[in-house]
Design a protein around this nucleic acid. Structure first.
Lengths: 196, 196
DNA sequence: GGACTGACAGATATTGAAATCTGTCATCGC
DNA sequence: GCGATGACAGATTTCAATATCTGTCAGTCC
């Protein structure tokens, strides 16, 4: 289909996502991707050195979307403590929606996550950076006390403390009845810890 | 071997642990367990209705050992904040030692955990109860502020916030260089949140 | 009489041959 | 010249036949 268009990395990534969505991580093959694009699988290898590299790129794109979706909460107007709760809640809601809306897709995503821990590490660093900025703002506003060591360490601690509510490994627990309350309790705990 | 001794649930559980250790969760069979005990597999079914029930009992025993190992930290002398840090550190150290000492056994354990979420839930409740008691002590001692809702909710929040450092799902991350510091940062965050 | 056995049916796992996939590269066509 | 192709070798996956396992129960043994 659309064999007239130029074959770009972007188009290959879109096709790969479609194939992953349709067949799952176990059955998705490079040949499938090529078939969707109406090209030979050799052409795919012109843009991505290996199947692993292709899957890594898909993972990166996928995670990038979370970052983009969270930026509004990062740049919102209002006091930093309120923005932090908003940001954390948005992160939880985003992940939960993804997990609840299409559990199979989430399982696929989880497999990719497991395959590409380096990409995930970089992604986590980005998220922690976002938290760091809110903490710095909060300190400037006089809402948050000075951090015990530095903002980045505290931000990482906030990220780790809320891990259960954004790490896909825990996706199965997010649909249980108490999840919402448990999340609120941890956020409340974190806010208490930060308050000056 | 030792076919003279009476066949008890206890002996079957020990043999099952041995078989799980040796063959892993995928290959361990009831027939193997019976062979270790020198009995027919029919005899095993006299004590455990199904293979699943047998594995559940092993899981329960395994988790019970953590509870027992932590009791000294729960009942130690000293201020509650210090005891809380000690208890959390002991929990982390315990899990980490298990994971680091024998990764394969940990993987086996993880599979059992996944199979028996009901047992795990009960176990988590026990651990949260232990935290609750320390929080109550701390409040009585004037070290911890009154909880936002109740002690049990806050205790669950403390448990959830430190999840990354005791949940076996995260075992792979515990050997990374920053783990110790990340743990300390989260504990410090939690302590700040509780302080009155 | 009550703990234990072992043969059995149906379910699950293993195995090895055949099919498919990954990654390369000499060749094609524009 | 440059992107695309498709045949190929070696690695991986599938599939169906074969073997093993789970759970039951009538019967054995002390």
């Amino acid at each position: 289909m659309a064999a007239t268009e130029t074959l770009t990395a972007e188009r290959i990534l879109e096709a790969t996502e479609e194939v992953l969505r349709r067949y799952g991580p176990g059955k998705a093959t490079v040949v499938d991707v090529a078939r969707v694009l109406g090209v030979s699988h050799g052409s795919v290898y012109r843009h991505f050195r290996t199947k692993a590299a292709l899957r890594e790129a898909v993972t990166e794109r996928w995670l990038e979307r979370t970052i983009v979706a969270l930026t509004p909460y990062l740049e919102a107007e209002g006091p930093a403590d309120w923005r932090l709760t908003g940001w954390l809640t948005a992160l939880f809601a985003l992940k939960r929606k993804k997990a609840g809306g299409d559990p199979e897709l989430m399982a696929t995503f989880q497999v990719l996550i497991g395959e590409n821990s380096a990409v995930v590490d970089r992604h986590e660093e980005h998220l922690v950076e976002q938290i760091t900025r809110i903490l710095e703002d909060g300190h400037r506003e006089g809402l948050f006390a000075a951090p015990e060591r530095d903002f980045a360490t505290t931000a990482r601690a906030v990220f780790d403390a809320t891990d259960r509510f954004h790490n896909p490994a825990h996706a199965a627990e997010w649909s249980s009845p108490g999840a919402e309350d448990a999340f609120a309790a941890v956020v409340s705990l974190v806010q208490r810890a930060l308050r000056s």
